[in-house]
């Protein structure tokens, strides 16, 4: 018995295409803009005007790669990715149980595990494709507009790290979705936890007294500074992978055993 169901997979691609295109499109567009606008001259000018500013709210943006690390992956991609995971995570399982359309799926010859496993594969591969697009578009535009200015290895590591972080977010929303029979509860846990991690990450960067908050957010595992400064970051990313696998596994196991109000 294979756990993957191709027909269902195609169905999931079709039904989630719109939201995928919106998020992936926005992320690709943004990385394209960043790569085409922030040429060495622009960076120099920004640095000059910001010389007197006491704290730079944007973080270190003196080089293209640090801007990409702090602003793009640390902000835009983070928000868009979290929104994607919240919507899709809830939609894949809990929303279908809540609305009753899960009965429509489960009254065909398919096991619950086939359903959840295929959904998980869809979720993971859609994020993979999304960040693959970001890398290709970012690299392509940078090479076209300002050849040689983008350190490709670091950009790749950043994209990969960001992908792994978002896979963990998807694991959280997926687990919440498998756990609850109501959209509202699934969102409360999945979105609630995601927003909490995002907020604590932001606050931790604002002042020294709030820096301890770094210890409560998973976003810390995606250490963009370590990546661009070539420090060690592999261990943390492996931790994210492990966490993701565990979250998906628990979700699938719970859904297999629970009563469904269909």
């Amino acid at each position: 018995m294979t756990m993957f169901n191709k027909t269902l997979f195609i169905h999931l691609i079709k039904t989630n295409l719109k939201i995928f295109l919106i998020i992936a499109g926005s992320l690709s567009l943004l990385i394209g803009i960043v790569m085409s606008i922030f040429t060495p001259e622009t960076m120099h000018e920004i640095a000059k005007t910001n010389m007197d500013a006491p704290v730079n709210p944007l973080g270190d943006i003196t080089t293209l790669i640090s801007f990409v690390a702090n602003q793009y992956f640390g902000n835009f991609a983070l928000i868009f990715g979290i929104i994607y995971s919240i919507i899709i995570g809830n939609k894949l399982i809990a929303d279908q149980v809540d609305k009753g359309s899960m009965a429509y799926h489960l009254s065909t010859p398919i096991t619950r595990t086939q359903y959840t496993f295929t959904s998980a594969i869809y979720f993971v591969s859609s994020l993979l494709l999304m960040f693959g697009l970001v890398f290709v578009v970012g690299y392509g535009v940078a090479e076209f507009v300002q050849p040689g200015e983008l350190p490709v290895k670091e950009f790749f590591a950043l994209t990969l790290g960001s992908l792994l972080l978002h896979l963990t977010f998807s694991g959280i929303t997926f687990l919440a979705s498998c756990l609850f029979n109501r959209s509202s509860n699934s969102l409360a846990l999945g979105a609630g936890l995601s927003v909490f991690f995002y907020a604590t990450n932001m606050l931790s960067g604002m002042s020294d007294s709030l820096e301890f908050l770094k210890n409560v957010t998973i976003i810390t595992f995606f250490d963009s500074n370590a990546i661009i400064q070539n420090e060690s970051y592999g261990g943390q990313l492996i931790l994210l992978v492990g966490l993701t696998v565990v979250l998906y596994f628990i979700g699938i196991t719970i859904f297999k055993r629970k009563d469904l109000p269909l």
Binding site: T7, T15, Y104, S107
Partner: peptide
């Protein structure tokens, strides 16, 4: 088995034809 639920609910944003075709594919 053929099953007709009391409170019928299909995935939104699909036409009846697509729904029927999807069930046929799944089966």
């Amino acid at each position: 088995l053929g099953y007709l639920p009391a409170e019928i609910a299909f995935p939104a944003n699909m036409t009846g034809t697509q729904i029927i075709q999807h069930v046929a594919n799944m089966r």
